[in-house]
Structure formats: C-alpha cells, structure tokens
C-alpha cells in the first residue's frame, strides 16, 4: 500500500512528539561521484518552488583556504573529529554538506515581498535550460500539461481515479504545473511562467491547480457523523490537501462511510496513507489506501 518513495524513519518513539509532518524523510540522500579530473559530482534532491521533487547536479572542486582566526577557534579546528565523523578525512563530506544555489541577498529599503529573489548570473543558464523543458501530457501525450489536457476527465491517467465534485476552496496558490513526461516530444511550447515577461510578472496562477489523481486516497469505514472539515484537518498534517470529497447520503446528509482525499504531492499522500491507515476516528477505525480507477 505504501508508495516506494517513503522511507521509514528510524526509531520512532512517542507519537505525541509529532506535531508537524516531516518533510525530511521523503527525499533520497545526496549522491556523490568522483570525477577523473579531481572534481566531484554531487546530486542532491530537494523540493523546488512549485512543490515538485527536483534534483540539483553540481560539479565541485575542493580547495584549501588559509585564514587567520581567533586562537581558540584555531584550536578547535585542530580537534580530531568525533562520533560518526571519527576517523574521516578533513573537509566537508558530501553526504552531510552541500552547497545550495547562489542567492544575492541585498537589504533594500521598502522591500516588497512580491519581488523575486535574484539569482546569481550563472543561474540564468539554469533558467534557460528550464525554458527548453519539454512538456508532455501524461494522459494523451499532447504538448500540454496534464492538468490542461482536454481529456483529463475522460481518460484519467494510469489507474488512479478522481471522482466527483471539485472542491474549489481547496489548495489555492502554488498550483504547480504537472510536467508529466519530461524530455520527450519536440514541441517548442514554453510554459507561461517561463516566457520572457517584461517586468515582474505575477505568476499568480491559481488555475493550474493540480489534482494529481495519483495522490488521491480512498478512506473507508468513515463514521457517519464525519464532516469534510474533520477529514481535511486530519489529513492536512501530511501535506497540502487539494480536495476532499466525502460521500454523503443525499437525503439525510450523513456520511455514507467513505471519502476521497487528494493531495498536491504524491509523497504526502503516501505518507498520509501510511500514517492514517488504522487511525481511530469516532468509533470506527479508518482504512486508507490509494484510490484505484473505478471500473466504469
């Protein structure tokens, strides 16, 4: 039932400790490879601005710099490393230390949060590379994002069903583009948020709200007095919930016993699935699993 990308965290103790969902568990650790010219290639995984898992590949060279320091500091520098670092060679280890993307941080008067954080010039190359990103719809392989596919509602992708009502209030903001199937297809489509815009574009795209049906869970054995809000709050712990559909009896308004919860991110859904399955709610124990495409 659990998706492959979730790692089980070590030695979990008191469940009461957890007050916030953990993002750290989900990403794979960085990978390092040594290159022939003495440099190293490091691949780190992170979640980008749009909430998608992304990887950063860096080629680095290690250099030794001599600095003058406070004598006590110098002394500490000379201490042998201890604990898990004992015996390891000098210098930052790539499994624990990586360099992030260069940020130009300059305090300004009248700072407005709408301004984009400037990236250093070499980052423009990266931005260019992203511009050439090929878009392919997962559903019909057309050159549009999956969410914009005209067949979205008729040909749901790969075995996950989305059912019924759209919850318009769910998950506004940051609706990332679902760039299904990168790298294939030779269209020259440039997604709007990457087109060269004059001035500070807003990019306030709430339309591309994503209801990734791969991240929809079916929750059964739901108490008949349950409400959508209860479910939303329970499941929000694990990530952004874009939609909650609680099946209700039309006449009485009571819950019929099952619900669908859609997440923005599949890994959130996976984590929620794992954690909420077996959760006691009301007088019943919930069953949570990934929603399968209905056979209609």
């Amino acid at each position: 039932m659990a998706a492959a990308s979730v790692q089980t965290p070590p030695a979990r103790t008191d469940w009461a400790e957890d007050s916030e969902p953990d993002l750290a568990t989900v990403l794979p650790p960085p990978q390092v490879t040594k290159n022939k010219d003495g440099t190293e290639t490091i691949v780190t995984f992170f979640i980008n601005e749009d909430g998608k898992k992304a990887k950063r590949t860096q080629r680095i060279r290690r250099t030794i710099v001599k600095k003058k320091e406070n004598p006590r500091v110098a002394e500490r520098r000379a201490w042998p490393k201890m604990g898990p670092e004992a015996g390891k060679p000098a210098g930052p280890r790539s499994d624990t230390t990586t360099l992030g993307e260069n940020i130009i941080f300059r305090p300004v008067m009248g700072f407005k949060s709408g301004q984009q954080q400037e990236k250093a010039p070499e980052e423009d190359k990266k931005a260019d590379a992203l511009k050439k990103m090929q878009i392919k719809c997962r559903i019909c392989s057309g050159d549009h994002f999956t969410t914009k596919c005209p067949f979205k509602d008729t040909m749901a992708p790969e075995g996950e069903a989305g059912s019924a009502a759209v919850d318009m209030d769910g998950g506004m903001g940051g609706g990332g583009e679902d760039a299904g199937g990168l790298g294939v297809g030779s269209s020259s489509y440039v997604p709007p948020h990457l087109r060269g815009k004059t001035g500070s574009g807003t990019g306030e795209r709430m339309g591309g709200r994503e209801r990734d049906d791969l991240a929809t869970l079916r929750v059964t054995n739901v108490s008949e007095f349950a409400e959508e809000e209860d479910l939303r709050q329970m499941f929000e712990r694990y990530g952004r919930v874009t939609r909650v559909f609680l099946a209700k009896d039309r006449d009485t308004g009571r819950a019929k016993g099952f619900a669908f919860v859609s997440y923005a991110d599949r890994s959130d859904a996976a984590r929620a699935c794992e954690k909420m399955d077996g959760y006691g709610f009301g007088h019943l124990i919930l069953r949570v699993e990934f929603a399968k495409k209905s056979t209609t």
Partner: peptide, 26 residues
C-alpha cells in the same frame, strides 16, 4: 582577541562549484 595571543592561521577546506544545473524529477 588579545593582543598578546594574536591570531592563528587555520586551514579550511572549501568547495567551489564549477557547474550546476537543476531539473524536476518524476
């Protein structure tokens, strides 16, 4: 830092990034 003590020289290893790029992972 006391005058008498003076500063000491310390060696630190730094990483220099030669190239980097990012991409979205499925």
């Amino acid at each position: 830092v006391d005058e008498a003590e003076g500063e000491k020289v310390v060696e630190e290893m730094f990483e220099e990034i030669l190239e980097e790029h990012e991409e979205v992972v499925e």
